[in-house]
Amino acid sequence: MATYVIQRLGLMLLTLFAIVTLTFFLMHAVPGGPFVSERMLAPEIEAALNAKFGLSDPIWLQYLHYLRGIAMFDLGPSFKYPGVSVNQMIADGLPVTLRLGLLAVICVIALGVPMGIVAALNRNKWPDTGVMLLATMGVAIPSYVIATVLLYVFALKLGWVPTFGLDDWRGYILPVLALAGFWISFVARLSRSSLLETFEQDYMTTARAKGLRPGQVLFKHGLRNSLIPVVTVLGPVVANLVTGSFVIEQIFALPGIGRHFVLSITNRDYTAIMGITIFYAALLMVMILIVDLLYLWLDPRIKLSRQSA
């Protein structure tokens, strides 16, 4: 177990290093990018950048400077706003983004899985058809369309929830739903097909042949096994929820990291783009690691093969 975690952490650091390198050199290729010396910039920003990265130094030295910064969790100053660091921008938006993401993950699990169960238990009857119809819509309609439609209907027309801002809890409803919509549908479809497959397994017949009650058969024997594929997709789910929040934060005008990111793109705030990308990547990889560990705990067969390997 411990060796597995260490292995995974090692791979994660390697990936992160690859990402930092890739990002740095991509940004270097931008005409007028952060590490090019011929630019028109506010003098105080120029000075801050120079102090941080040594702009007159050769590129490999600048790269090392940047790496050293990353190692000390310092993403450098903003390219556009004097006196603001990328760290500050992230710290500013993180709580909102995390809260949104967490609520969305909860929604995905709390709505998607039960929807799948209901559909599987009523196979080919109306609850199944209804859930599958809804889920197919959720998978096909892009989140920004869902977001704008929700915004129009519930905020502008019906006025049930505020159109923007997070001043009270109702402000969270639409963004979270729009963010989670696709993945709720995805998880509903996945858990349905996974459950149906599990129902066919011999051990389910064994469980019934032991005289266990339907509830015991479903929850103890059926659900746990069919949830394994659902857990495996949770990693990508988390990743996509976080990247999906760019648009959602934009549409609902929420002050999260995604909004900062989109704003940095339009402003061509290169250091911010770099910093936020790297931060995102790191965040996602930690999340995926957590999900994988959860998976390990859920399926004992994996544990053995990993340990012996």
């Binding site: 990936t15 940004m27 990247t243 990308t277 990547a281 995926i288």
Partner: peptide
């Protein structure tokens, strides 16, 4: 491939578009 697949690809499309 394993390393690439852990990188959030949407981010990279965005970065490439910026470049």
């Amino acid at each position: 491939v394993e390393i690439i697949s852990t990188i959030p690809l949407t981010l990279y499309v965005i970065l490439l578009m910026v470049v």
